[in-house]
Write a protein that binds this DNA or RNA. Structure first.
Lengths: 250, 250
DNA sequence: TCCCCCGCTATTGTATACATAACGTATTCA
DNA sequence: TGAATACGTTATGTATACAATAGCGGGGGA
């Protein structure tokens, strides 16, 4: 293997983890399929030790499942698993919003959130929204959710929300993309943006219960739309995360 | 190493994980302290590979923290981290209770919960409660919470609750033990038991919102009592988990 | 005397060799 | 002909060797 170039700026473990995650989310590995360590070694270029570490991390992340007799398989998710994961995430974000509201947030901390909000407003002014603008929306939306989570100032909660978002379909980007499959996509984005506006207002006015309620509603909207999107499966190829969905939807 | 007896019924990785966790929770490793792999190899009897796997798992579990330059250190928790973790767990259990109520639960599934409830009632009849009875209570209470979580029938949620409970002070046993440090311990247990009774009633009557609310209140009670217990620090040695608390409380 | 640089040591990250267990296949016996 | 067992192959779990980096200490120069 004379041609192996080792990039020491990032560990082999991390590289293997990223490469394997890509394979999982792109669907080149099928749900239920056993992961061969040797095959992973070949595709990632790392040796067995870092590959094994990456597999352990991906298992903890929820993308893989340990096989009792040894090794790992690609985890499969039902439609209900997905909607539960989204609702779960919404519940945690609701708690984060409530913490932020109850504990108080300075105007300076709220500034980036408001910038995000304004940027999204700008994008949504286009009717219909362009593909580019939609892609910007996905980024900005993810940023909004991340900033909101940070406002809770609660490391354990932030950590848990990160874990809950590691399942790709439960991440903000994931469910936005699922919603985009619907004809009423633009209206949905507008309603979501209204939720964003309300949660900031509630936090500013230190209304914890209201802040929490709107984030939970935000997630319920996402669940409802995901269900609809799965019914009329148009553009579902937009959502590579669905590579992990199990046969229940077929 | 002729004397090394290898028990092949359980992997070296799991053994190392258990041994290291014991060390962490018993306080033989101090918060902030770097974990030496070689030292871990000596104390656990496993070789470096399984030790490293165990370290990765303990990091994902939240007991360790990766050091950027390499290796792991014992994670330290503030008092707020702990109360947030308890509230977080209560929020998730609230969601589980709501799922159970909304999705419906058969009488047969509810049976073990009711048995648990009755057994705890029996224990609480003693005034004051004996040490043995208290220890049974801890076990039964943990069982009650585990059964309730299962009732949600939501693997992603169950998984997340398990993760949230892996922090020892956030587990049902953990916070019960913290509460036991208070003089009004018995009254607290009685109130907690009332919460248990209400959540079952709410689930039976399919009142999702009520089931959720009572579980959240249950956690808030625990948070309040933990704060009290940390103020008048009597019997805190009952709670080995506090080995991980950082100096904020000193 | 203080600061900087060089080198050493210790510890981690990585690779690989070895052992063991599981699975598949083929052969044989009923 | 089918089923069961035995053997072989393959993959995983474990151990260890090797390499590289980071931290530390000593020595030298300003």
């Amino acid at each position: 293997m004379a041609e192996r170039e080792v990039d020491r700026s990032v560990s082999q473990t991390v590289k293997a983890q990223l490469a394997l995650r890509d394979q999982l989310l792109s669907g080149s590995l099928r749900p239920g399929e056993r992961i061969s360590e040797l095959q992973a070694v070949e595709t990632t270029g790392a040796s067995r030790t870092p590959v094994r570490m990456a597999l352990v991390r991906l298992e903890e992340e929820g993308l893989l499942e340990a096989i009792p007799s040894g090794g790992f398989m690609v985890k499969a998710f039902s439609e209900r698993d997905i909607s539960d994961s989204i609702e779960l995430r919404g519940t945690l974000e609701g708690l984060a919003a409530r913490f932020a509201a109850e504990r108080g947030v300075s105007a300076r901390e709220l500034e980036p959130l408001k910038e995000c909000l304004a940027a999204i407003d700008e994008l949504l002014r286009q009717v219909p929204i362009s593909v580019d603008a939609f892609s910007s929306y996905v980024t900005l939306n993810a940023r909004f959710h991340a900033l909101l989570t940070e406002l809770s100032r609660s490391p354990p909660l932030i950590r848990q929300i990160d874990r809950a978002s590691s399942l790709p379909f439960a991440s903000p980007s994931g469910f936005v993309m699922a919603q985009s499959a619907l004809p009423e996509a633009q209206q949905i984005l507008i309603i979501g943006q209204e939720h964003h506006r309300v949660v900031i207002d509630a936090i500013e006015n230190r209304e914890g219960a209201r802040a929490e309620a709107v984030m939970r509603e935000h997630a319920r909207l996402a669940v409802r739309n995901l269900r609809l999107a799965l019914r009329n499966r148009t553009h579902l190829d937009l959502l590579p995360a669905l590579a992990l969905i199990k046969s229940a939807t077929d």
